[in-house]
Amino acid sequence: MKYLFLILIVCSNDVYAQDDLLNELEQHEAATKDYVTSAFKSTRLVNGQTMETKHKGELEFIFAHRFGAINEGAYELFGLDQAYVRLGLEYGITDRLGVGFGRNSVDKTMDGYIRYKVLAQTKQGMPVTMTAFANAAIRTSPKKEDATFDITLEDRMSYTTQVLIARKFSQALSLQLMPTWVHKNTVDTSIENNDQLALGLGGRLKLSRSIALTSEYYYRFQVPDSNPYFNSLGFGIDIETGGHVFQLVLTNSRGLTERAFITETTGEFFDGDIHMGFNVTRTFQVRRQR
């Protein structure tokens, strides 16, 4: 009887000790910051930016395409006869700081930008990720000799500043707010102002590990009644395959620089001015980790 008792105690103590060991480990573990990653698959949501930055040493090639409007009918093969292209590159200087440039065929615009992740969402404390984004764009069309006035380089410039605030609510759902300020050096003041403010709202709903639905809308503030443009709206499907992300989109915007799609969207989505398009990104690791 006594021995049974002893055996019991030894055994129970052993079992206890085993659980103990893992618990003890947990106590030793340093409380590291647990960052929430991959709120979005790409640095582009539909037309606009996400708060994602490239990792250090990564180079992303972005090939984006927008066809003509679907409501142009069979003659234009529902827009497929026309194409607007943006070719771009983005590089991660650090995990938080990125630079990029590109050229869009809409208005023959060249753009350069910088983004910096100011805040990063963590599991324990920080509820959101916040990235500051700024770009400068030169509209090289029309040519000097074709312009209706004596156009200078300054007239061609526009600048966009954005704060991209996103939260990954769950594995499936991420939402983003994009307060935006677009400044254009030269405008037709009868229809628009030099400084324009907009608030974007976007999100991602993941359907599987590799496929997600995305959406994005930019609301513009204080738009003059005479302004002929519409708010930009877009929907997309993200498909990720290894180093590529394919984004198939439907949007009322043709342009792919902030000036063009936020402040100069010519199509009314619900009248069928919908452009099919895609963004294809390919990421290369230029500088190896370690």
Binding site: T37, S38, H55, T283, Q285, R288, Q289
Partner: peptide
Amino acid sequence: QFEKSLMKE
């Protein structure tokens, strides 16, 4: 830690 960040992701 991986050689490529995308692999890690």
